[in-house]
């Protein structure tokens, strides 16, 4: 069965305050890196999934992202899925929530 590589990026919704991002932005200034106007922290989750085809992989990963990896109340997610089923290769955003 093909193995698909995927990456799910989870970020806070724009309306949600990110104190960790703000504190990190302040530290960037202290480091002397100027001009950092916005800094928000999310998560990147790397996965490999076995599935009969790309559509099934996308469906399973969408469910996983929506129900486990992200909390849709406060977070958005983006799914990047390698399309060749070899567990590697170029990936492109193919879903979001």
């Amino acid at each position: 069965m093909p193995v698909y590589s995927a990456r799910v990026l989870v970020s806070l919704r724009p309306s949600v305050l990110d104190p960790a991002g703000e504190a990190t932005r302040a530290a960037a200034n202290r480091l002397g890196v100027e001009g950092v106007a916005k800094l928000r922290i999310g998560k990147a989750v790397e996965l490999e999934i076995e599935a009969p085809d790309l559509d099934t992989a996308r469906e399973r990963l969408s469910l996983l992202s929506d129900r486990l990896l992200a909390n849709p109340v406060i977070e958005n997610w983006t799914l990047e899925l390698a399309t060749d089923g070899q567990g590697q290769g170029s990936s492109s955003p193919v879903g979001e929530g």
């Binding site: 104190p19 960790a20 504190a23 990190t24 302040a26 530290a27 922290i41």
Partner: peptide
């Protein structure tokens, strides 16, 4: 310290 944001001790 500083909520240990990013990593413990990073800020």
């Amino acid at each position: 310290s500083y909520g240990d944001y990013l990593r413990c001790g990073a800020i």
